[in-house]
Amino acid sequence: MTKPTLNDLAAFAAVATHRSFRKAADTMGVSRSALSHAIIGLEERLAIRLLNRTTRSVSLTDAGAQLLTRIEPVLLELDHALDTLSEARGAPSGLLRINANKSGARILLRDVIPPFRERHAEVEVDLVSEGRLVDIVEQGFDAGVRLFEAIPEDMVAVKFGGTVRFIAVAASSYLLDRGTPRTPDDLKNHSCIRQRLPSGKRYRWEFSRRGSEITIDAPGNLSLDDNDLLVGAAAAGQGIAYVAEPFAVPLLRSGQLVEILADWCPAIPGLALYYPRNRHMPSALRAFIDILKETERARKADA
């Protein structure tokens, strides 16, 4: 039996972890066809099937599950050793993958990534921006960015960007025609522009004042899945939108939007970068967090 190469075993581990050739290929930066050929070659050399494959799913055979259990710690330790070597050279290198929501990606691109790239040119940054909350370990990311309150408890979180407010906004023309809501309960008599989450569910609007909390399934016959589209529709007089304040600020300043129910929209903990608690931290991620903390200290000093 010809012994498999390290690349073959790493390819198998990626497919087995993601249960998907597409996701594994994206993580490894290779084509799906190349990855498929590598797995076929590995199975031929070992003379045993490791994966059950259909057009819709990938699952482990018993032999594949046993192999993954044995090689995962070895591959992880190898990554650790190579990362330690990188630290000894004094310069982080390799690939740093971060999954972020759109607002988090904007802040990182504005404040953190430019100085990080200047100091650590040998690190390739792969920033993926999407609305859904993913399992960063399963999807092959080193870290993620989401609202602090949405981060799983088993993760380490590093807050940045300050607090955030979710606010209700509408065009002056709409308010002149329909009246201005004074309490969240008044929204039942208005046309609200609803937000559809990546999960398919509609976002329920949350308000709070002096310890009183209200959650509303806002009424309306228009649903959108993007914050920029929400504020654009509100500015066009289509109804009331409820969004994170930074998305509405430009149109509030220009007068195209008006904030309503301001006293029902307190600030909440904002964004945080998070990563697995019990895994070795790559030197590239450690360096990224150092710069993130630097920019956060500077932001607080200027506030």
Rank of each mutant, 00 (worst) to 15 (best):
G162I: 10
A267I: 07
R277L: 07
E43H: 02
E72S: 13
R19C: 10
P198F: 07
R106I: 03
E206M: 07
A100N: 11
L75N: 08
S173N: 06
R286S: 13
R202M: 07
V112R: 09
R202V: 09
L292Y: 02
G232A: 15
P219Q: 04
T27Y: 06
G211D: 10
A81Y: 09
A284Y: 03
P115S: 00
I151D: 00
D263E: 14
P246S: 05
A262I: 07
N278H: 12
S20M: 03
L133Y: 09
G179C: 05
T17G: 12
A218I: 01
A171Y: 01
L222E: 13
F148C: 02
A47S: 10
G232R: 15
G131L: 13
P152V: 04
L6G: 04
P181D: 02
Q66G: 08
L75R: 15
R279E: 06
R277Y: 09
G220Y: 01
A303K: 01
F141G: 04
T61H: 03
M281L: 10
A272V: 05
A234V: 05
D185H: 13
A100E: 12
E44D: 12
I107H: 00
S33D: 09
Q256G: 07
Q139R: 12
A284H: 07
I48R: 14
Q195C: 04
D154S: 15
E124A: 03
R70M: 13
H120E: 08
P246Y: 01
A168N: 03
P250W: 04
D62A: 15
Y274L: 02
E206N: 12
D135N: 13
A143W: 01
T17Q: 15
K293R: 15
E294S: 08
V128A: 10
R253A: 07
L222P: 06
R253G: 03
A16D: 06
C265I: 00
D290W: 01
